[in-house]
Each structure stands twice: as C-alpha cells, then as structure tokens.
C-alpha cells in the first residue's frame, strides 16, 4: 500500500504502485459478483474481492474462469493485452 502523505504538486509526478499482469473480473453490480462467488468452481479461482464489483483471480486461472462463466451462460467481455478494443479512461 502506498503511504505517501505528500500530495503531488500540479504537474509533478504522481506516486503510484503498479500491479502488472493482474487477472480481474469486474461485474455490472455487486449482486452479480455475489453470484459468481457463490459458484463453487469459480470461488476456488477467486482469491479476493477488491471492491464490491471487482474480483481478483488466481494467476494463471483466467481461462478456467472464462470457461466457467460461459457455462453459467454469461458472455463476458474479455480484455487480452492484444485485444482489438482498448479501455477508455
């Protein structure tokens, strides 16, 4: 966690901690996240809940998670590093 109490001055570099190659699932709402957590096969690959709608996936298990989501009838939007779409800020 970051513990930098000093706010960056305007234009100064913003301190940030970078987490690379993270596998995440973001749901439309918290209820859907609960639904995923309640699924036994998914729960074992979900290592944590970062926020109400964001679940952290065990590294290397993302393909299994996507498969299980498909089995549940979901059609998740998957962002691979080389996906044609890019997330907008």
């Amino acid at each position: 966690m970051l513990n930098d109490p000093i706010r960056p001055a305007s234009g100064a570099r913003i301190p940030v901690k970078l987490h690379r190659r993270v596998c995440l699932v973001q749901t439309e709402d918290g209820v859907l996240a609960e639904e995923l957590l309640a699924r036994k096969k998914l729960a074992q690959d979900i290592v944590g809940r970062l926020t109400d709608r964001v679940l952290l996936i065990r590294p290397g298990r993302v393909e299994m998670v996507i498969q299980e989501l498909h089995k549940m009838g979901h059609t998740p939007q998957v962002f691979h590093p080389t996906s044609p779409q890019r997330q907008q800020g």
Binding site: L18, H19, R20, R21, V22, C23, L24, V25, Q26, T27, E28, L32, L36, V62, E63, V65, I66, L69, H74, T75, P76, Q77, V78, F79, H80, P81
Partner: peptide, 9 residues
C-alpha cells in the same frame, strides 16, 4: 455485464 481482464495493469 461482466468484464474479464486477463492480464491487466
């Protein structure tokens, strides 16, 4: 409804 980031930053 669901977005999966397979290797996000």
């Amino acid at each position: 409804r669901i977005t999966v980031y397979s290797s996000a930053t």
